[in-house]
Computed example of a mutant assay.
Amino acid sequence: MKFAVLGGTGLIGSEIVTALTAAGHEALPHARSTGVDLLTGEGLAQALGGADAVIDATQSPTTDDASADFFRAATGNLLTAAEHAGVRHAVLLSIVGVDRVPDLGYYRAKVVQEELYRTGPVPFSIVRATQFFEYLAEIISWTGDRNTVRLPPTLLQPVAAADAARAVADIAAGAPLHGIRDVAGPDVIALDDIGRTTLAARGDDRTVTTDATAGPFALAPDHALTARDGALICPTRYGDWLTT
C-alpha cells in the first residue's frame, strides 16, 4: 500500500513512516519542509496522488484556542484533497482524553478536528494515543525551578512513540474503523511519580513536590488521560525505556 504521512517529519510522524516501511509499504513523509502547506493547500494534490491512505500526524503551531482555527482550515483542506485524490482511508492521530478535559484549549481543538473526520467525505479511523515517553521530560520541566519540580498526582498511561507508531501503522493498513481506538502503554502512573523516576534516571537531584494545582495536567479529572476498555496496550514500560 501507498501512504501519505502528513506531519511525517516530526517525532511520531517519522516513527510512523519507519513502521510502515518496515511492514513493506510505501510511506512518504510530508510537511511544510517538503513543500506541503495544509493551510494554503499547496502541494496537497501531489502529496496525495496515488495514495491508498493518508495519516494525519500534524500539530497546531499553538496550544491555545487559536489551534481550533488551525485544525478547521488544515483538516478541511486535507480531507477535500483526499476525496479528490480517491484516498480510501484517512487516519487521524489524536490524544486520549481530548473529550474529557474541556478546560484545556488544545484538547478542545482536537475535539473539533476529530469531528471534522467523523463528518468528512473520506472513510476514517481516529487513533488516540496517550502521552509519549519522549515528551515526559518536557512536561516535567513546565513546573520546575532550580531546586524543586511541582507536579500533580494526575494519572497517565504513557506510551513509547515507536510503539504507538506501529499501532497507527497497523490500523492505517486495515479497513477504516469509522470510530476511535485508544493506544496506551502498559502502566498507569501518577505524574508526580513519573517525575521522580525521570529525575532519578537523569541524575537530577531536584525534589519533586506533589501539587494538585501545578501545570495544565492538573485540570484533568481522575483517569481522564488513561485508556478506555478495548485499547491497544503496547509492551514497552517507561522504566525500561529510560534505561535504554
Rank of each mutant, 00 (worst) to 15 (best):
Ala90Met: 04
Glu115Cys: 02
Gly97Tyr: 05
His84Cys: 05
Tyr107Gln: 12
Leu79Ser: 01
Ala74Glu: 05
Ser125His: 09
Val101Tyr: 12
Ala82Phe: 09
Arg108Phe: 04
Tyr106Trp: 04
Asp103Ser: 15
Glu114Ser: 07
Ala74Cys: 07
Val96Cys: 04
Gly97Glu: 07
Lys110Gly: 00
Asp65Leu: 09
Val98Leu: 11
His89Leu: 06
Val91Leu: 12
Arg118Met: 13
Pro121Val: 08
Val127Lys: 08
Ala73Arg: 15
Ser94Met: 08
Thr75Val: 13
Glu114His: 10
Pro123Asn: 08
Val91Phe: 05
Arg118Trp: 08
Arg118Glu: 14
Val91Met: 04
Ser67Tyr: 10
Arg108Cys: 03
Ser94Ala: 08
Arg88Val: 04
Ala66Asn: 14
Thr63Pro: 00
Ser67Asn: 09
Leu93Ala: 01
Asn77Cys: 01
Thr119His: 13
Leu92Met: 13
Arg88Leu: 10
Gly105Asp: 15
Phe71His: 02
Arg100Trp: 05
Gly97Ala: 07
Lys110Cys: 03
Ala129Met: 11
Ala73His: 10
Asp99Tyr: 02
Val87Asn: 00
Phe133Trp: 12
Ala85Phe: 14
Ala68Lys: 04
Ser94Phe: 09
Val122Pro: 02
Pro102Phe: 10
Gly86Pro: 13
Leu93Trp: 00
Ser67Cys: 12
Leu92Trp: 00
Ala129Pro: 01
Asp103Trp: 05
Gly120Glu: 08
Asp103Phe: 06
Ala68Glu: 13
Glu83Arg: 14
Gly86His: 11
Asp65Tyr: 02
Val101Leu: 12
Ala73Phe: 00
Val127Leu: 12
Pro102Val: 08
Arg88Ile: 00
Pro121Leu: 06
Leu93Pro: 00
Tyr117Pro: 07
Ala81Asn: 11
Thr130Ser: 15
Thr75Asp: 05
Arg128Met: 05
Ala66Asp: 15
Arg88His: 10
Ile126Trp: 13
Leu79Trp: 01
Ala66Cys: 04
His84Val: 14
Glu83Thr: 11
Leu104Pro: 00
Thr119Arg: 14
Glu115Pro: 00
Phe71Gln: 00
Val98Thr: 15
Asp65His: 12
Thr63Trp: 14
Phe70Met: 08
Leu78His: 03
Arg108Ala: 04
Ala109Trp: 00
Arg72Cys: 06
Gln113Ser: 12
His89Asp: 06
Thr63Cys: 04
His89Glu: 05
Ser125Glu: 10
Tyr107Ser: 14
Ala85Glu: 12
Tyr106Glu: 01
Ala129Gly: 15
